[in-house]
Structure formats: C-alpha cells, structure tokens
Computed example of a mutant assay.
Amino acid sequence: MTVARPQNRPNEYYSSTGPDTPAQYNFNWQVKDDPSGNDGRLQRVTYTVNGNSGYVAEVTYEGEAQFPTYQSSYTPAPRYA
C-alpha cells in the first residue's frame, strides 16, 4: 500500500510517535452555590449499560425539595384618570 503525503507539510505532522510531553487534560468543573437561601435536594444519577439498549439511568433523591415563598419587589405605577 502506498500513501501519499502533501509536500507542503513538515514531517512532524505525519510522525508515528507522539509529542515529547504527555497530554494535559483538565476535567474540573464547579457549581456556583448561590447563597440566596434556596434549599434543595441531592439528585444522584447512576448509569448502567443494558446490552444493546444503551445507557439506563437510575435516578435517586436525598432530602426534601424546598420551595421558598416568592416575594415580588414590583410595585405598579399609579394610574390617573
């Protein structure tokens, strides 16, 4: 089998060895925890694979959901007739 390579690319693009330094991966993430007083519950999702059906999610909850009362700060403008 013959493989052609464009002549305008340096050889390092077609090297069979990787770079001298290992790859750097960063998978960090964080949740902004707003201290507004909204309390919630923990939702945990566990995934399993069921044959050819794909991923199956098992969802469980810890704690009780809290729904704070809504207080509007809107005051309508007076209307004059």
Rank of each mutant, 00 (worst) to 15 (best):
T2W: 05
V3H: 15
V3D: 04
A4M: 12
A4D: 04
N8V: 08
R9H: 07
N11P: 02
N11K: 11
E12N: 04
S15A: 11
S15Y: 06
S15K: 06
T17H: 06
T17G: 06
G18H: 04
P19K: 03
P19Q: 11
D20N: 07
P22C: 06
A23N: 11
Y25R: 00
Y25P: 00
Y25A: 06
N26V: 09
N26M: 07
N28G: 11
N28A: 10
W29K: 07
Q30L: 00
K32I: 12
K32M: 08
D33L: 13
P35N: 05
P35K: 10
S36K: 02
G37H: 03
N38Y: 14
N38A: 09
D39L: 14
G40M: 11
G40Q: 03
G40S: 13
R41F: 14
R41M: 15
L42E: 09
L42V: 13
Q43D: 13
R44M: 10
R44T: 15
T48S: 09
V49I: 15
V49G: 01
N50R: 14
G51W: 01
G51Q: 02
G54N: 03
Y55P: 02
V56Y: 00
V56T: 10
E58A: 15
E58N: 15
E58W: 07
V59S: 00
V59M: 06
V59D: 00
Y61W: 11
E62C: 06
E62F: 13
E62Q: 09
G63Q: 03
G63K: 07
A65Q: 07
A65E: 07
Q66W: 07
Q66R: 04
F67I: 03
P68K: 03
Y70L: 05
S72K: 04
S73V: 15
Y74D: 12
T75Q: 14
P78N: 02
P78I: 08
Y80Q: 13
